[in-house]
């Protein structure tokens, strides 16, 4: 088993200023109303530092890492 991380957003906390989409456009785009749409699946290794920054800089702490487990080869 390898541990991987995905991004989740607390929809009630998020107030849609869209800072996260600026910091991590590779994984986050905004909908018509300015709320983040997050790419499904694990965060690619090379984007982890940027994702970390997005999580830390979210002004309302709505963005978080979620651990997902994936069996090797799965």
């Amino acid at each position: 088993m390898t541990k991987e991380f995905a991004l989740t957003v607390d929809r009630i906390k998020c107030d849609g200023r869209g800072l996260c989409a600026e910091l991590l456009p590779e994984m986050i785009r905004l909908d018509e109303w300015g709320y983040p749409i997050i790419a499904a699946g694990p965060i690619p290794q090379h984007l982890i530092p940027l994702a970390q920054r997005a999580v830390e800089d979210c002004p309302v702490l709505a963005l978080a890492f979620r651990r997902t487990e994936r069996s090797k080869g799965g």
Binding site: R11, I12, C14, G16, D31, E32, W33
Partner: peptide, 11 residues
């Protein structure tokens, strides 16, 4: 409470 629900359903 959630933007996509509140704004999205209204739209």
């Amino acid at each position: 409470q959630c933007g996509p629900c509140f704004f999205g359903l209204r739209a």
